[in-house]
């Protein structure tokens, strides 16, 4: 491999001899902005790290697995669907026979893990290794380090998710043979963007932990426990509260609706709930509301799927909430980092 590289290099240098050399030089010599130097390094570190490779393998496997079950069950899903073959393509992401959860459920489960694993040692490992003070002694602003690391992780996550999303679409296209409509394509794109934001939320949480907690292992554990809390215990706790507060079955309708709404709002404290509401609405156009609907509200509605704009409108509060939490976590991490003492011992 090395020989090949040298050969290429030689060839290039032969090509550039003569007049071309003078023309090419200035472009090559222009140094990169330090911010992008850090981003560059971080991206290459991520891509080469074992933990990232393992996670990508895991996610790619589950993605292919869920697509396989989706394709197997496509026929049944089509027969049972009332609205005909509308949004057939989106079913690739949502159909399942309960042996394996569908793609978007997998992402809501594994996405946090990806975010946490990319971020948990962002700052503390640099500090423990003694590289932080060395890098900070270079003429760069302090926040470059944090911002560049966040940007690098976001680039990696975005590329990964778009690649996976397009992979599923492409394979589905080959297997099913029906091309997606423009709207379906846009819905998938929005789904991917939303997933990226969701992972960014967990990434920022783990970056915050990495700034505050000195040991990388402790910081990883803190991130994972928050994730476990929201994905397992939180629902149990809400169930418990719901049981305690449930109105009697003879209560008037508005009391029951009020109670349902309250429980739903409690659930929405969990980012996973926000994400799953938003994704289901995006990927299943027949979903008309994320909350309970009374008969009066449904009366007179045309039983057809929502157009993309309306779906987006339905999930807008969820998306705003997710983005707000993401930004809040980043701001906390940023402030903590700017105030941090950087010495290594």
């Amino acid at each position: 491999m090395k020989e090949g590289y040298n050969m290429v290099k030689k060839k290039v240098s032969e090509d550039t001899t003569g007049n071309q050399k003078k023309v090419k030089r200035p472009a090559k010599e222009k140094p990169k902005h330090p911010f992008w130097v850090i981003v560059n390094k971080e991206v290459s570190d991520h891509v080469r790290s074992w933990r990232f490779i393992i996670l990508v393998a895991l996610i790619a496997l589950t993605c292919l697995g869920s697509m396989y079950t989706a394709l197997n069950n496509m026929g049944d899903a089509l027969k049972s669907s009332k609205t005909g073959e509308l949004f057939f393509f989106l079913k690739l992401f949502t159909v399942s026979d309960n042996t394996l959860p569908p793609f978007f459920v997998f992402i809501s489960f594994l996405g946090p893990l990806l975010g946490i694993s990319l971020g948990f040692d962002t700052i503390n490992s640099e500090q423990n290794r003694g590289t932080l003070s060395r890098v900070m002694a270079q003429p760069i602003y302090r926040d470059y380090i944090l911002n560049a690391k966040f940007t690098a992780s976001m680039i990696v996550i975005s590329v990964l998710f778009f690649a996976l999303g397009f992979l599923v679409m492409g394979l589905g296209l080959i297997a099913v043979g029906i091309p997606p409509t423009a709207e379906e394509f846009l819905r998938v794109i929005f789904f991917i963007v939303l997933s990226i934001f969701y992972v960014a939320l967990w990434l920022n949480l783990s970056i915050l932990f990495s700034v505050r907690i000195r040991q990388a292992a402790t910081s990883a554990l803190a991130g994972i426990s928050v994730w476990l809390f929201f994905s397992i215990f939180f629902n149990m706790i809400v169930d418990l509260i719901a049981k305690g507060l449930a109105p009697s079955s003879f209560a008037p309708e508005y009391v029951i609706v009020k109670f349902q709404k309250m429980i739903l709002n409690l659930m929405r404290i969990s980012p996973a709930q926000l994400y799953s509401e938003a994704t289901t609405t995006l990927l299943m156009p027949s979903v008309r509301s994320t909350g309970p609907l009374t008969m009066e509200q449904v009366a007179g509605a045309i039983p057809s799927p929502l157009p993309l704009g309306q779906s987006l409108l339905v999930v807008w509060p969820q998306v705003t909430g997710l983005i707000a939490v993401t930004i809040l976590l980043f701001a906390l991490a940023y402030v903590a980092f700017m105030r941090k003492e950087i010495r290594s011992s």
């Binding site: 570190d45 290794r129 003694g130 590289t131 003070s133 060395r134 002694a137 010495r343 290594s344 011992s345």
Partner: peptide, 12 residues
């Protein structure tokens, strides 16, 4: 130029 105590480099 600053050489910190216990200077560290990226391992890989």
């Amino acid at each position: 130029g600053y050489l910190p105590e216990e200077v560290g480099f990226y391992d890989n």
